[in-house]
Design a protein around this nucleic acid. Structure first.
Lengths: 340, 340
DNA sequence: CTGTTAGCGCCTTCAA
DNA sequence: TTGAAGGCGCTAACAG
């Protein structure tokens, strides 16, 4: 049997197809009585809208895109993205929108994909993640006229509306915890220097620990590519310095674990000799010994909010930024007072 | 400026829109000369097909779906899925297809989503992962008449075509390695009993190590939910038994890491007292001490093949199963001869 | 308040 | 080989 169409419903209910369309979309133009009759007919036939037809007519794909330019390896090892996606989907599903997800090589490929998606009208807009310094994406999206929301920070270019977590205050919270314990020399093993959130964290650490002001010495930031290998290398160089830090803050969990191994190999105990903090709570942080003190963000809610902002934008609402509360610091076993 | 349409190209090239359609789709009906002229015009205008219009007309969405019923937490911690997706996308992109990705609560929700996707004609078919015992999905998909490929095993119901890796022979390979080292008592910390690939592994281990036949004693399999917590619990119970195993095979990396911690806490050295093998190579397996001996699969190629089979199915090719080669065993530091 | 009508952009018959 | 015409299923203008 053929899939029922609006024309079928119209025939069954004895009205025009336009009336059916109105009734189905809950808009004025039909009396309550006929609306009920139409809905009953649609229900009896098991009608479902054909997205292609709706998209063609309404000039709206009913889908949004998410392209991610990170190596699959890095992505898979972090729970952040999956939870982000989970949150995005919860929000999208509620409004009958689908998510097109795509892994890309780099930002250029990402822009190329946006161009393609937009030209084909595959999506109505996109969620942009991992904002960078000198990020070409906002300008490219504006040039395309493609609706977008930046998830992960305010747009420095002021083009795209953003949704973000306050990294600066999160870092301040970590520093406060370490200072309470008595730490003076705090180091930071960060992600690539091109990523905005990483830059913000470094800047915040430098601000919070500037010499004199707070009783801590100026910190050292070592940048990495987020991998365990570079996390280990960075830790090795930090710990072998003359004035080695008594606490190290890592920009993700994998590097924190790798760093902890390096410390142990170097004959240092965690947290007795060196304290460790990971930025991102995950299973990984709880299976290690000692368990890791981490910063915990609600990635799911973050994703839902970003998706919600994008849908609002598509509905014609004015662009607006949303800043989240400062994430929680989960204190576990990897932080303790520094050695005397 | 308006997005160019076929009518625009036709006007520019001075031909009919039908001629343009023929030229663009590389089918007979236009002379080579006009075809070139048309292609040049399309190029000059930067024309791209509108997917909604094409989908409506061709009755084909140009998209396939992937719904995953695993907790986000479990997903995110394993690199397998991201690489799988990466492979799927590479194959789909090549043929101008998009991927709709969706996380669902359970198999029932998954079937509900298939029903919805199919009713809306959102996708042309789906990739089904994590086949289970008494899996309701193949029958549900057949009832819907929805094209699908099962990624992760042959369909026991014989309904869906499948793409899979030979778990039985992979397990045999692990057992061979352990036997060479001299292990006699091998235990298995598996995933949930409902998952087919987990069942296959357990069965293979039991087969390979049945008493007498191979010089090993009958193995013990403990099922878990894949989490680190249950992996730890299972390890604790295995190691505290009177006849404790000298080697343990884990169904993923997280549990192997958790198990290693438990062994250490129990005063056992890895691999001196107990050897450990993880099923899945990931960063996690290389940052631990000792590094983990793992089974390595090519998830990306696996995904690409599955996607390729689905597209072939959509093109009307007959369903066909594809079995992969046995995955490689990467021997690292966590396996050694058992204690004397 | 209702129903008719004409597209949305593409593909594909049919005649010419 | 080409052009005209119609339909895919839905929505949004119109008139009635």
């Amino acid at each position: 049997m053929r899939r029922p169409t609006i024309a079928d419903i119209a025939r069954r209910a004895g009205v025009s197809s336009a009336a059916v369309s109105f009734a189905l979309n809950g808009r004025p133009g039909v009396s309550e009585h006929t609306r009920q009759r139409i809905l009953a007919a649609a229900d009896a036939l098991g009608w479902q809208p054909n997205t292609a037809a709706r998209a063609l007519s309404a000039k709206r794909a009913g889908a949004v895109g998410l392209a991610v330019a990170r190596p699959a390896r890095t992505l898979g090892v972090e729970p952040f993205f999956m939870q982000l996606i989970s949150g995005i989907q919860a929000e999208l599903s509620e409004r009958a929108n689908a998510l097109l997800f795509h892994l890309v090589e780099d930002v250029d490929a990402e822009i190329g994909l946006y161009r393609k998606w937009w030209a084909e009208r595959r999506v109505d807009g996109v969620l942009v993640v991992d904002p960078r310094t000198a990020d070409p994406r906002p300008a490219a999206l504006r040039a395309l006229g493609m609706p977008a929301v930046l998830a992960g920070g305010p747009d420095p270019a002021g083009i795209l509306p953003g949704v973000w977590i306050d990294d600066a205050r999160a870092m301040a919270r970590i520093v406060a915890h370490l200072r309470e314990l008595g730490h003076v020399r705090v180091a930071h093993v960060s992600g690539p220097s091109g990523l905005l959130h990483t830059e913000r964290r470094s800047a915040a650490l430098h601000e919070a620990t500037r010499p004199g002001a707070t009783g801590t010495t100026g910190p050292t930031t070592v940048t990495t590519d987020f991998s365990d290998t570079e996390g280990a290398r960075a830790t090795r160089s930090l710990l072998s310095a003359a004035d080695r830090p008594t606490a190290i803050v890592y920009d993700n969990d994998v590097m924190a674990v790798a760093g902890m191994s390096v410390a142990r190999q170097a004959g240092l105990a965690v947290p007795a000799d060196v304290s460790i903090v990971a930025w991102e709570d995950s299973t990984l942080c709880r299976v290690t010994h000692p368990t890791l003190t981490t910063l915990s963000r609600d990635a799911s809610r973050f994703g839902a909010t970003a998706a919600g902002r994008l849908l609002a934008l598509l509905d014609g609402e004015p662009p607006a930024d949303v800043e989240f509360d400062v994430p929680e610091l989960i204190v576990r076993e990897s932080t303790a007072p520094p050695p005397a």
